[in-house]
């Protein structure tokens, strides 16, 4: 059998193996989602694909409603998919890292809603547990040491 890859410099990615179900972290290493599905650019469907048709590319990571269809089958309605543009991806490893902050992504809106409407309003909700406000840097460091 001929090899299923070639010698070009670059990176080979198998969707299931390297992308689906991996954690997505934003630019501050805060989790924003898990890759539930991938959106590809449009290709001819239900018709013959002419031999010179360029292959599709990944346009976005999908999450949100896509998880339900991964579990139960079917197809998520277009409007319920939360998209993270592929262009925002900077690193693919054990986790997928983005170049942008979570607040610029539409997929974190439920987190923001719960924060602004409920958790942020309970006294103490904006402090790291066990730290006074003055020590509070606001960034994403561990409270362990």
């Amino acid at each position: 059998m001929t090899p299923g890859t070639d010698d070009r410099p670059g990176r080979w990615l198998d969707a299931q193996l390297h992308l689906l179900d991996r954690q997505v972290l934003d630019v501050d290493d805060v989790p924003v989602a898990v890759v539930d599905d991938l959106e590809l650019s449009e290709v001819p469907f239900d018709q013959e694909i002419s031999i010179d048709t360029p292959p599709p590319v990944i346009t976005a990571l999908l999450s949100g409603a896509a998880i339900a269809t991964r579990i139960f089958g079917g197809r998520p309605p277009e409007s319920r998919m939360q998209r993270t543009p592929w262009a925002a991806v900077v690193d693919i490893g054990v986790v997928i890292k983005l170049a942008v902050g979570r607040d610029t992504l539409d997929l974190a809106w439920t987190e923001r809603w719960v924060r602004d409407r409920i958790i942020g309003r309970i006294p103490g909700g904006r402090h790291i547990p066990g730290r006074k406000r003055s020590e509070h840097s606001g960034s994403d460091e561990r409270g362990g040491s």
Partner: peptide
């Protein structure tokens, strides 16, 4: 189809991942 293979020309930001083949 057990998986779909993509090729990423380099890992710098914004590179497109092109479908290479199906497994």
């Amino acid at each position: 189809v057990s998986d779909v293979r993509f090729f990423l020309e380099s890992e710098t930001e914004g590179q497109s991942a092109r479908l290479y083949g199906i497994l």
